[in-house]
Computed example of a mutant assay.
Amino acid sequence: MASATGMSQSAISRIWRAFGLKPHAIETWKLSTDPQFVDKVRDVVGLYLSPPENALVLAVDEKSQMQAIDRTAPTLPIMPTTPARRTHDYAQHGTTNLFAALDLGSGAVIAQHYRRHRHQEFLRFLKLIDDAVPQDLELHLVLENYATHKTPEVKKWLLRHTRFHLHFTPTSSSWLNLVERWFAELTNRKLRRSAHRSVTELEADVRTWINEWNRDPKPFIWAKTADQILDTLAAYCQRIKASRH
């Protein structure tokens, strides 16, 4: 860039920093093709911004295939001028699936590990939620479009438990489910720097972290309206259309 414009490299660097430009970085994104995209966005965001009275809104999802990973050598601790260091290779000791329901009001989480990820486990988790939440409250669950959430067995159970109301996010729109924000906290604060020699050890460690979280939970506040989200996506679509000409 400096050579092409006749400017100094330091000037180009200052301009990039001033405008937050990062030519070396590329991010990925995916536009949902769900035919009910607009209606689903308005439904889910409406729950976030204006939850119904006498009801609990829960953002529900599964963090599947969590790996129990142990490094092949102990991690070297941080030292003056030297960051903590660990081996690039590791040993795998199995996987587990964490089902989680984030209470949008309080930030508290109902969670349970299951070794498999089928509709049977999803039903067991629904029953856990049913037992954990007072019976006088309606339950509105924000979910993604997994096949395990829509099996005949699940539908029959929901018909017998009428306080449960399911709200599905559009396809390819996991960013609309607030529990994903909590999963990011779990990954950054616990999983990324941890080592576990068994699935049982991983599950116990995560359970301890969740219990600590629930002692002083922090809710995540949804700020954007449905109209703001749809306007932003419309602008992206216009840019895509313009880039093709």
Rank of each mutant, 00 (worst) to 15 (best):
D216Q: 15
P52G: 08
H113E: 04
R192P: 01
W213N: 10
E153F: 09
S198N: 07
V206K: 03
D103L: 08
R116W: 10
G105A: 13
V38K: 15
S106V: 05
D216T: 14
T95R: 09
H113Q: 08
S13W: 12
F164M: 02
S198W: 02
I15D: 09
I12R: 07
A195N: 15
E201N: 11
L49C: 07
I78T: 14
A235P: 02
T75D: 13
V41A: 06
V38I: 14
V109C: 04
W182L: 06
D34Q: 05
D216P: 00
N188Q: 14
H113M: 05
S172W: 04
I210K: 06
Y114H: 09
A101Y: 01
E121F: 01
V44H: 00
K156E: 15
P152D: 05
L76R: 15
L102D: 01
R160F: 12
G94W: 03
A100P: 03
H88C: 10
K127E: 14
V41Y: 04
D89Y: 11
F220R: 13
N188I: 00
N145L: 00
S10W: 10
L128H: 11
I229Q: 07
L137I: 04
A101L: 04
W182G: 03
D130S: 12
M7G: 09
M66N: 06
A100N: 06
L56P: 00
D34Y: 02
L230I: 12
T225H: 08
P23V: 09
L102R: 04
D136G: 05
K22N: 12
D103Q: 13
F164D: 02
G20F: 03
R86L: 07
A91I: 09
F99N: 03
L56M: 13
T225E: 03
T81H: 15
P77K: 09
D130G: 07
G6N: 05
F125L: 10
L76S: 13
L141Y: 02
M66R: 01
W209A: 11
K156V: 12
R124I: 00
I229F: 02
H196A: 10
G20Q: 07
D61V: 00
S173Q: 05
F168Q: 04
E180P: 01
T169A: 09
N145T: 01
L186D: 02
D43N: 13
E203N: 11
V179Q: 01
F19M: 12
H117I: 00
E203R: 08
D216Y: 10
K30G: 12
T151N: 01
Q120E: 13
L21D: 04
H117Y: 06
A59C: 14
D130V: 01
L98K: 02
D131F: 03
R17I: 05
L123E: 05
P134A: 10
Q120R: 14
K30E: 13
L166I: 11
E121G: 03
W222V: 01
T33G: 13
S174W: 00
